[in-house]
Design a protein around this nucleic acid. Structure first.
Lengths: 338, 338
DNA sequence: TTGAAAGCGCTAACAA
DNA sequence: TTGTTAGCGCTTTCAA
């Protein structure tokens, strides 16, 4: 026996609305899209019918018919470290919030960087960082889909990119330490496979060089951004003979770990060790000693990427831009004058 | 002169493939969907043509024609605290990864709980927690779209829910403290607007009652889950006359803050204060004293929700289930026998 | 095992 | 200001 479906009440189509409102479907279409001109009388009737029938247009039909899509995809490389960072959440939050406001559908892809993505029908793509997936990006760009890469300055591809001045930020952090009189300045890096970590390391070296301070291998500790590795690095750093008087750490969460280790070893911050982090993670505020850090405009970057994409999609603007956003040193309490 | 477009290469349609392969579009459809039977010869030809033309079917046309959608929406209430939690990321990660594997498109909505969502065309919906958006859920359920609510046991709605045994977890945490001889046990709550925090508080009270320990208002500190509020609470807790000997904290990140405060005040963990957290956030592992905590199967919950939805969507199974996943006390180093 | 043809629900010329 | 009509690119009967 075939009986009426209870749940998925037969889909209401634009035709039902037209019938109820006593107009053509074209008029209904005009009303719901706010395009063309419609007599107030009819408009009201349509709106009334829409409400009464609880009509929601089928986005698939709309997209198929119009050839336009208000879907944007956010591609996050499924790289181990990425999800333990302040970064990912801030990004998703920034992008998600703006998409909501702009009525864009946000498609989230946690990609393993290999599987081909079916990008057809996606209006635009945001690549969150580049980690082994340049090919994917290349392919997306080639397909003509508007793309913007964030958190990575992409040199080799003709694609929009919005990145952060990691080198400059790191440099200013170290400059600051030098200005306080520090000469033995250590660095705990992030995961060097990421451009961000590499550039921060670069900035560190640049500043030392600028000030005529020799780079010392023993003061450099490479990590994968995890708190665990930060802890080991901090332990080595603190217990070595002739230890550094200051350390620039590639992320705030690692810097907090260093602080904790120092405190446990009976060291006092900033008296025994000056620390500068990177991120401006709010967690840095709550400890006993507020963390001096480099603020990076993550949510600005996130929002900028959506706006940029939106412009490209709607205005058909095609000019490729590579934007680098500035960072800002936020001086708090974790460093002292030597 | 009309010349070949370079960028947005004219969209290849199923018709182009059919022509090149020398078959009908129906046959092509059969091949790409692996439905119906097609002679090997033709199949090969189609596959060859697909590859050569780099054909990707239009998902919109597919969905429109078939009436099926492999899109699932993840609705996250845009509530202030939610993004500072271990919770959100774990969820997105779990759901995102599984969707990727199952080839489901994941639509992310950070909702303000008021704007109506156009759910038409979405195959299924996962609501991440319920915070002031019961109406949205009600509407989604009414529309007949398969829904599952996670991290919240929804009593009043006929909807699938997968939640965590917060009460039981909290109870076992406090039971454990009692078993170690503690009688003065404080509790730092999470944001009581969330069901999770309320249930953990419930479990705390239940355990005390069970053991004949009177509930003392002065030992209860309400927070919004933030580290800042955890710090204030910890300061009060530690500096009060006749302080508690143990504290059950509603989240690990807050518990870590309590640990930090204690250490700064010259207290030793667990000698001066026993601490149990909740979450099993990996950060709890890296401190000087590993945090005893309640493990909640977040990623299991996340994955379960996708699987459940997938079953409902494909099998048309409609039975509503309300699952409560167990928690597990993970004993590490932050508590001592009195 | 195949293909013709009728939609899916909408948008966008074009005409009126 | 409105409606007619031809698709958008696919899936799915139905017949062959």
């Amino acid at each position: 026996m075939v009986h009426k479906r209870v749940g998925p009440s037969k889909n209401i189509s634009i035709e039902d609305v037209a019938r109820l409102a006593g107009v053509s479907i074209t008029t209904v279409s005009r009303v719901i899209n706010n395009s063309g001109s419609v007599k107030t009388r009819n408009k009201t009737a349509v709106l009334e019918a829409v409400k009464q029938l609880k009509f929601k247009p089928s986005v698939f039909a709309q997209r198929l018919a119009s050839g336009k899509s208000n879907v944007i995809a956010l591609i996050i490389p499924r790289y181990e470290g990425i999800f333990y960072s302040f970064y990912a959440l801030e990004l998703i939050r920034g992008i998600g919030t703006l998409c909501e406001a702009l009525k864009l559908d946000l498609l989230l892809h946690l990609t393993d960087s290999r599987s081909p993505l079916n990008l057809r029908g996606v209006g635009g793509i945001i690549f969150a960082d580049v980690i082994g997936n340049l090919d994917q990006i290349q392919e997306a760009v080639d397909s003509g889909t508007p793309c913007v890469v964030i958190n990575n300055y992409v040199k080799d591809l003709n694609v929009n990119s919005i990145s952060i001045d990691n080198t400059g930020g790191a440099e200013s952090a170290v400059d600051y330490l030098v200005s306080l009189g520090h000469k033995k300045i250590a660095h705990i890096t992030g995961d060097i496979v990421t451009q961000g970590a590499a550039q921060r390391f670069e900035g560190y070296k640049k500043s030392l060089k600028k000030h005529g301070i020799a780079l010392e291998e023993k003061y450099i500790f490479k990590t994968d951004y995890s708190r665990g590795q930060a802890r080991s690095a901090a332990e080595k750093l603190i217990n070595m003979p002739n230890p550094a008087t200051a350390v620039f750490v590639a992320s705030d969460s690692m810097a907090l770990e260093v602080m904790a280790v120092a405190r446990e070893s009976g060291k006092h911050i900033p008296d025994d060790l000056s620390i500068v982090g990177f991120d401006d993670n709010p967690s840095g505020l709550y400890g006993p000693v507020a963390l001096t850090t480099v603020r990076q405009p993550l949510s600005q970057m996130a929002q900028e990427s959506v706006k940029r994409l939106n412009v490209i999609i709607s205005k058909k603007e095609a000019k490729v831009e590579k934007i680098v956003l500035p960072t800002e040193l936020v001086i708090r309490e974790s460093c002292r004058k030597l």
